[in-house]
Computed example of a mutant assay.
Amino acid sequence: MKKMMTLIICAVVALSITACASSGTAAKTPITETTAITEATAITETTAITEITAIPKSTTPANTNPDTMIANPFVDCQTMETAAEVAGFEFRSPEQVEGISEKKIQAVDQEMIQVIYSADENQILIRKAPGTRNISGDYNNYQKEETITVAEMQVTLKGNDGVISLATWSANDYSYSIYVSAGMAQDSIVSLVQAIH
């Protein structure tokens, strides 16, 4: 009888220990798994948001991504007549400038015509576009800047060391600009302004 009671007590104790152990494991497992999943999700989402925010602002300039680069809008034209058809207006410029007859004519659809005269390291860029804005594309600072009157037009001249590198003006609802990479004497650039329309 004593042996039987001892066996029953042992069995009850064993079952209690097993139940407690099972209960403890069951209680701990969901908490650990839930915690792990929640933390992993939070870290991933935070990291993803931080990386997405940081890329455009700091590490990836907009112009380095081929998908976001702006295509060259200029169309090469064989004649000024073709350029006029593309741009939607006429433009007259000299056959040669400062003895330079090598030139390239380009136009932007309904926006601009430009003529580039090139010789050695000197480049002369003449532009015309509708409106009254600065269309030169040259935003450098120059030692000299003055506005003079040429054929009733107010022409702004900019340059360094006694030569003019940039002339800009507006007339008859169009903007004009002349950029000379090597610089030009003021009298010469005034004559060029008078020859352009």
Rank of each mutant, 00 (worst) to 15 (best):
I17D: 00
N72D: 09
T29K: 14
Q186Y: 02
T147Y: 03
A185I: 12
V97I: 06
I55W: 05
P66D: 11
N160L: 08
E98M: 09
A21V: 12
A48W: 06
I49Q: 07
Y179R: 14
V163Q: 04
A195W: 06
T38I: 12
I43R: 10
V190Y: 08
F89E: 02
T44N: 14
I31P: 01
N141I: 14
E90N: 07
Y174T: 12
A42S: 09
T47C: 02
S165K: 15
F91S: 09
K3N: 10
R133H: 11
G159Q: 06
Q186D: 04
K57I: 09
T38M: 02
D109Q: 15
K28I: 13
I105W: 06
N122D: 06
T156D: 04
K104W: 09
R127T: 13
I55D: 03
L157N: 07
S101D: 05
D138R: 08
A107R: 12
G99N: 03
E102D: 09
S16R: 15
I189P: 00
T168I: 14
W169F: 00
T34G: 06
N122H: 06
E111W: 11
K128M: 15
V12N: 01
V155C: 01
V12H: 08
M4P: 00
A87S: 08
I135M: 09
L166Q: 12
Q143T: 11
M153P: 00
T47R: 07
I135W: 03
Q194S: 03
D120C: 03
T18S: 11
E98V: 07
A21T: 14
I126Y: 02
P30C: 11
A40C: 05
N65F: 01
T64H: 01
Q106H: 04
S165N: 14
I189C: 00
K128T: 15
P61W: 04
L7A: 14
T34H: 12
I9W: 06
L15V: 14
A151V: 12
I135A: 09
L125P: 00
A182D: 14
P56C: 02
D173P: 00
V13P: 00
I49N: 07
N160Y: 04
I189Q: 07
Q96G: 01
S177E: 10
I126H: 05
A14P: 01
G137P: 04
T29D: 11
N172P: 00
A84D: 03
M153A: 10
M153T: 09
T44C: 11
I70V: 08
G159T: 08
V150M: 04
D76T: 15
D67H: 10
S175N: 09
D120A: 10
V163T: 07
Y176V: 08
T156F: 01
S191R: 11
V180T: 15
I31G: 05
A71G: 04
Q114L: 06
S165H: 13
I124Q: 04
T82I: 14
A26M: 13
E121K: 12
